[in-house]
Design a protein around this nucleic acid. Structure first.
Length: 436
RNA sequence: GGCCCCGUCGUCCAGAGGCCUAGGACGCUGGGUUUUCAACCCAGAAACGCCGGUUCGAAUCCGGUCGGGGCUGCCA
């Protein structure tokens, strides 16, 4: 059993391609089959090396490794169609010689019988039947001698021994052409499977105008690959029992093309983000710390200092509980980094009051005299001060929060103060205390 | 226009004739918890496109209709 995906490097790897790749990969894994990746770059106008690199690197990022194909090679050369033009030309010539194709203004067209029908059993849709009267003679070799998709793709599938072709539904109506071509080549027919398309929120085939639909964009946004994979599985398929969060092992165990829904799904990143939150929260603390630091280094475009790392390690476990993507980390921890510290004016105005002033003044002087600056002692001082001043907890705590973190929204207060450290905390409190 | 595919809450998925006054999840609304934001817990609104037929009985089968989508390129 051999499956394949054949992306065209005319755009980045988008989530539709990724899902097709994933389903093929799952099926190959589940059945001990071979998964092949080749590059369909017959459209020399639009294909670029950059897109090819994007596709390959993002497939790798997702962990959808292949057994044969581009980069890793195999018994059939480079797995890039642009390097096989001779082969396509040779076959086109031979079809021409056999009278199965004819020349038309410099191009070669495949001659489609004008009666009869093509039937095949689609793994997702069941019995399919097309009347040949509805299939036009199609170009297989352009006038510049480059092959069209139909010829190149079909011939590759035959040459590489593909036994299951699972691809997007947009190719469904081209399948009769491919079957005709395979018959003309005396090839054994593979099993076909046309996966439903992914739509944007407007119900149209997912494309660039729906915003960032590339895998790379979600990776940039701080989406974890496991969350991405999990979400992609859920589009058109489910492992049953209303299970929503599951790993690839379970998916491999349960996956079957027969269970894929025939109707298209709308891609909605809300659920992806929710799942991503679940995955972030279920990460091992050490792993999360590592990915958080990586992300921050990348976002800040500089290495983090040791002092910053110490502060981060204190607060990160709390941050892990309250974010949806890795990109949310920065806002939560910015007050702990050696970056310009700004207090949000609006927030400060809304929490500042004479009571708040008294409170900040008192805890500041108590902090100054505090020898062991620990979460426990900070907690004790801040609570007892609230009581002794007879003010509302919220008034004191929120004022302290804005003073120390710069905004009304932050990780837990005592931890934030502890992470910032005694000196920093005292200094920031002082900045907020009037008439000092 | 022609050919083809599809049609369960806003969205994703469950449902393969009675277990369905249709279940789960995201999102949404309300409440609880709480020093903020989250997380978490509870509750709620929310769907079988429509019309016929088959059947004792249909979300499930059939036909039609309407609606959405894909293809219709010397793009893939």
């Amino acid at each position: 059993m051999k499956l394949r995906i054949a992306p065209s490097p005319t755009g980045q790897l988008h989530i539709g391609n990724a899902r097709t790749a994933l389903f093929n990969w799952l099926y190959a894994k589940a059945n001990n089959g071979t998964f092949l990746v080749r590059i369909d770059d017959t459209d020399t106008e639009r294909s670029t090396k950059e897109f090819e690199n994007d596709i390959i690197s993002n497939l790798k990022w997702l962990g959808l490794d292949w057994d044969e194909g581009i980069e890793i090679g195999g018994p059939h050369g480079d797995y890039r169609q642009s390097l096989r033009f001779n082969r396509y030309q040779e076959i086109a010539e031979s079809l021409l010689l056999q009278g199965k194709a004819y020349e038309d203004q410099g191009a070669i067209r495949f001659k489609v019988p004008n009666s009869g029908s093509i039937k095949f059993n689609d793994l997702v849709r069941g019995e399919m039947s097309f009347n040949l009267t509805d299939v036009e003679d199609f170009v297989i070799l352009r006038s510049d001698k480059s092959p069209t998709y139909h010829l190149a793709s079909t011939l590759d599938d035959v040459d590489y021994g593909i036994t299951i072709i699972a691809r997007g539904e947009d190719i469904l109506s081209s399948t009769p052409k491919h079957i005709l071509l395979m018959q003309a080549l005396d090839a054994e027919l593979p099993v076909f499977c046309h996966l439903p398309l992914l739509f944007g929120p407007d119900g149209k085939k997912l494309s660039k105008r729906h915003g960032d639909t590339s895998v790379a964009a979600f990776k940039e946004k701080g989406v974890l690959k496991d969350a991405m994979l999990n979400y992609l599985c859920l589009l058109g398929w489910s492992p049953g029992n209303d299970i929503e969060k599951f790993n690839l092992d379970l998916a491999i165990e349960k996956f079957d093309f027969n269970d894929v829904l025939p109707n298209s799904a709308i891609f909605d990143d809300k659920k992806l983000l929710w799942l991503n939150g679940l995955y972030i929260r279920s990460q091992q603390s050490d792993d999360f710390t590592k990915s958080a630091i990586n992300k921050l280094t990348q976002t800040l475009d500089r290495e983090l200092f040791d002092e910053e790392l110490i502060r981060l390690k204190i607060i990160l476990p709390s941050v892990q509980e309250r974010i949806e993507t890795l990109n949310d980390i920065k806002d939560q921890v910015l007050f702990l980094l050696d970056e310009p510290f700004n207090v949000n004016n609006e927030d400060w105005e809304s929490v500042n009051s004479s009571e708040a002033q008294h409170y900040l003044t008192q805890i500041r002087s108590l902090f100054i005299d505090l020898d062991n600056f620990t979460p426990e002692s900070i907690d004790r001082i801040m609570r007892t001060s609230i009581e002794s001043l007879g003010i509302k907890t919220k008034i004191g705590f929120q004022a302290a929060r804005v003073a120390v973190t710069g905004t009304k929204i932050s990780p837990p207060l005592f931890e934030s103060i502890y992470a910032l450290g005694k000196e920093g905390t005292i200094a920031r409190l002082a900045q907020r205390i009037e008439n000092l």
